[in-house]
Design a protein around this nucleic acid. Structure first.
Lengths: 257, 257
DNA sequence: AAGAGAACGAGCAAATATGAGCATTATTTT
DNA sequence: AAAATAATGCTCATATTTGCTCGTTCTCTT
């Protein structure tokens, strides 16, 4: 049990149960309470939790920054979400896709669909990994925005990307977000990313948000758009019934994959 | 068990299990811990993983890296040409790269060079595969042109790509061509590709053509530019002496890798 | 309000991991 | 074949991590 897995375990525990206890963690992770305290100190310095006497509690805002500690995401739901999204896209459509694991799954599902037109779809994306996967597919027309690659990410952003999007009209925009709040709408961690999402939504006749259920209770930094500008949300079965109800009230069609 | 297969094994392991352990890797791969540490150091410098004490953990974008570390080597000479080209590029330069196996090798060599500035280079490219390989590297600034992916190719072309290039100035353009004729100059097979090459050359202070020796006697459809607009040609030792001589007479510096 | 008991942080020593330097061995390159 | 270059393993001084102790601080009960 090395330090990193310990920190991950601590964060997992605190996310699940809402608090952690020094003595209990020490026993469970087979290390001394001193070590646990040092771990908690470090995590609290990174604003990932707040110390209390005897343990720690979560901080209000879950920053996107330290992905280092995030546990391996369960691809299961994302694949299902991706399939459900693909089913919503009509043949021959011009589809905009932003970056992210879920949108990547949507792209894969689109690519695997039997071509009914030629090209089967036109895909417009700012995500290098999506473009890289789709470029070999015969029956897809692939358009990339220009732009500067964000560090630690596969997405292109910046003025060059905006310029490209300004010249394109989309039938459907498929946007991945970091959080979807019933009150605030779609949010992401970064303002450049937000701008790309916003432009895609503006240029599209239909805007589809993909967000696994963890995103419905998550928080993020920058708002992309209010719920009113979203046509469809595709999420997984883990979504809370009240969250779904509130989003539906705002006029968004919610698809549970 | 050579270095590359070791690095691939490390990345595979870290993708599967979420972390790697120096001691365990050393035992499994039958090398000393020192070697493992050196491997991990290199991979972390390229941002393909993050060091911890005792091992390493994945970086954020490692989720489904389409481009593994493996270098599907495009041939001995092309690697050498790539290295020679990289040696011609000054630290911190803004470098334009078109698509092709040889330019890809040049990009790899640039990416592996120890960073002397920050960013070490700014890379501008219309080749999706090059962007895909470079996007994770911390010390590179990566700019993609927009554009439409040509079928069966990794290159973006069309008006969107031209628009992007019109906004950018390059220090060095590294262009791959299909043929380099002492009389006619640089030629490629496709007019879209020719246009991209032409624009890059126009925007650059220095134009470098990469062409293995087979290209010197080849023919191609569209002319990119006459020899007079080329500053450097990098080719391999198979180049015919008379061809080289004629190209040198036109004022082109010829580097034989 | 006062005291008991738990939790805390600082300091210390042992165990382990690390990076630099160097000699040896592979692998290219000439 | 010889020389140059790169990769590897080893050693050693240095870093980090961890568990422990101890004086202090906090919390809860009386």
């Amino acid at each position: 049990m090395n330090r990193h897995s310990r920190l991950t375990a601590v964060l997992d525990t605190i996310t699940d149960s809402g608090y952690v206890d020094v003595a209990e963690l020490a026993k469970r992770l087979q290390v001394s309470p001193s070590t646990i305290r040092r771990d908690l100190t470090q995590l609290s310095q990174q604003n990932l939790l707040a110390r209390t006497h005897g343990g720690a509690v979560p901080t209000s805002v879950n920053y996107d920054l330290p992905v280092r500690y995030r546990r391996a995401s369960s691809g299961e739901e994302k694949v299902r979400i991706g399939r459900a999204v693909a089913a919503l896209v009509p043949d021959g459509a011009v589809v905009g896709l932003t970056g992210g694991t879920t949108t990547t799954e949507a792209a894969r599902s689109l690519a695997e669909r039997a071509p009914a037109t030629d090209p089967a779809f036109t895909i417009v994306t700012n995500a290098i990994n999506i473009a890289s996967e789709l470029t070999v597919r015969r029956h897809l027309k692939l358009v990339m925005t220009g732009g500067v690659a964000r560090m630690h990410s596969f997405e292109l952003t910046g003025p060059l990307a905006y310029d490209t999007l300004a010249q394109i009209d989309l039938d459907v925009a498929i946007l991945g977000v970091n959080a979807l709040d019933p009150t605030w709408g779609a949010k992401v961690a970064d303002e450049d990313e937000a701008q790309i999402n916003r432009l895609m939504a503006e240029r599209a006749r239909t805007t589809i948000i993909v967000a696994d259920s963890s995103k419905l209770s998550a928080r993020a930094f920058v708002r992309v758009c209010p719920l009113g500008e979203i046509d469809v949300l595709v999420t997984d079965a883990g979504a809370g019934a009240d969250d779904v109800a509130r989003i539906r009230e705002a006029g968004v069609r919610v698809v549970v994959a």
